[in-house]
Write a protein that binds this DNA or RNA. Structure first.
Lengths: 346, 346
DNA sequence: CTGAAAGCGCTTACAG
DNA sequence: CTGAAAGCGCTTACAG
């Protein structure tokens, strides 16, 4: 556990610690350290297996080279994949990432911001809960670099990266309609954040575009943090009381997964009796029989650009103002068996 | 970004920083600071929103209160769930967790150990790759607290926590046999680590217990890090050339998921033509038609005890020897439709 | 070309 | 009861 320090190397080389520090940080040239000394010091450091103590470097320089990533739920496929992209991208900039999950709990979200602040992260990547708005505002005003992902606060000047939820849902609706579905229900979560409101708007506006026989919007809003079990039963009740629906659009993948259980329990046939489309792809959908059509989020784009934007903020001179011009990336419709209506067998 | 420091509080209170430090660390009593001063200091700290700089504390005390968690792949359900359990458990001891994934890459695994060491984590929780053995040995000899999970190195005296893979597979085989399946194939991954060898041994020994007409072991070993696509085609080929099999046991969930694709491609009927059982449960299995029987890992047990064991090592006096007596927890068989053989329709 | 010294924000023996 | 001082391991202006 005894670690080699700068001092040890300096002692071994018979020079001051500053000289070693310059050489090892590639400032030998700049400081006009002799080439011979350079080689000697580097060899010594190598042999001793020297690695700078990041904690000491952080304390001295004020940069921890750590990014704080706060997602809703790291065990959810979308966020796990996003985290993976971000980790890899951050690494390419020389940054490490600390993850944590809010579990959609405002209080926990605020705590995490505090904890990460105390750990002196250099910036935050966050999929916020509603209740984190004030804390994020304060941190942002204090000059902390922040990038929001998957959702944003229109009133805060914090940069954000989103899927183009509105147009993705619109395209999904278009697809359903082109397949002959007409009475389309929408199951969403009762969360007042932009990604969900955009999806709902995409649904409502798509309905409005139907010229003749325009159907009414039929929406179920499942309360946030409802258990899997209760979600299934809410959806079952909804389907049961809206028997006229011929297709259903789930606004998130966990709603879709719960919905598939409901549909199976009610022994409704997909896609003949009910077309099924779900926002946010999932392995399950590819494997289900029939395979479930979905809208795949641009996870890679979101992650890559979130890191890019954050690093830009970090390296910019303090106090450079940021704006909230949400960067939007197109999501992709994956049409599968669940929305290919077979011809009636008459 | 200007943070409140101890010094600021001390100045405001008109006392030395040491006094503030004592009070805020709950050592006021011990140091016999007057109750009046205590209250005053606490109030001031509160009002100023003071939080100690963890970096400075780490540097001074040598404890970062951070645990390094290295898993195979954070976007895989089993590891993500494990990470969640560990995060929560660590928090209860006052520790934070830094995650990363090896992606089954020896080199990356070793790099991660290095990076985390430089970040001065207080200990490691690791699901190691084979190639991390030497690095872990060295770290352990240097006195770093380490706990291995899901696999271990029998020759290293590092504590480990495992599912009882052997008996879990044996129980699964028992279940298949009791359902009338007899010619059972085994699909595993070509990885020379204990969790996989135990599963294979469980399979082989279960076959040996069959008294009459004992079938031979029929095993496919998919090379590690084979792409999803190629895994599917390997399994298809395997099933195709072993048409006499009446059941198949997948040794991991990603193999099972690939296997379901193969089985669907080959239009083999589950459970009539082929019984299917998979190690490591997954949402997909519950939702599949028919639902797929599986063996659920004791994720909660593994996570909770891994943290407990690690914290014990951290708080024990340096140099207390550790042993590798693997802690094993029972996995649970979840019998579903894929292994309930229907009666022949004669 | 190179070294001595200050200081990042804490904690903790030590002194009074 | 409380304060002055050292020191964790670095980096960097400053001096020579």
């Amino acid at each position: 556990m005894k670690k080699v320090s700068l001092k040890d190397i300096a002692a071994a080389a018979g020079v001051a610690t500053s000289t070693v520090s310059f050489v090892l940080n590639g400032k030998g040239r700049e400081m006009r350290i002799s080439a011979i000394l350079e080689t000697k010091i580097k060899a010594l450091a190598d042999k001793a297996g020297y690695h700078p103590n990041r904690i000491a470097v952080s304390l001295r320089t004020g940069n921890s080279k750590i990014l704080g990533l706060i997602v809703e739920d790291i065990s959810n496929n979308f966020f796990a994949t996003l985290a993976k992209v971000i980790e890899k991208e951050a690494e390419s900039y020389g940054y490490n990432v600390v993850f944590c999950s809010t579990e959609n709990d405002d209080k926990k979200g605020r705590q995490l911001l505090n904890i990460l602040t105390q750990q002196q992260v250099d910036g935050f990547l966050v999929t916020p809960t509603i209740g984190m708005s004030d804390s994020l505002k304060t941190l942002h005003e204090q000059g902390y670099p922040i990038v929001l992902m998957d959702r944003n606060f229109p009133s805060l000047p914090i940069p954000s990266i989103l899927a183009d939820n509105y147009h993705a849902v619109a395209a999904g609706m278009q697809h359903l309609i082109s397949q002959g579905y007409n009475k389309i229900g929408f199951v969403t979560v009762n969360m007042d954040l932009v990604q969900m409101t955009q999806r709902e708007a995409g649904y409502r506006d798509a309905l409005k575009k139907i010229k003749s026989n325009r159907p009414a919007a039929v929406i179920l809003k499942v309360p946030i943090n409802t258990s899997q079990e209760n979600t299934v039963s809410l959806i079952s009740k909804f389907l049961d009381s809206h028997k006229s629906l011929d297709a259903i659009f789930f606004a998130t993948n966990y709603l879709g997964i719960a919905g598939l259980e409901s549909i199976r329990d009610l022994t409704i046939e997909i896609p003949e009796e009910l077309g099924v489309l779900c926002f946010d792809d999932h392995d399950i959908f590819r494997l289900y029989s029939p395979a479930i059509s979905s809208i795949r989020q641009p996870t890679e784009d979101i992650g890559v650009h979130a890191v890019k934007l954050l690093i830009e903020q970090i390296t910019q001179p303090m106090g450079t103002p940021t704006q909230n011009i949400p960067l939007q990336f197109a999501a992709k419709l994956i049409a599968r068996g669940s929305t290919i209506k077979k011809l009636p067998l008459i």
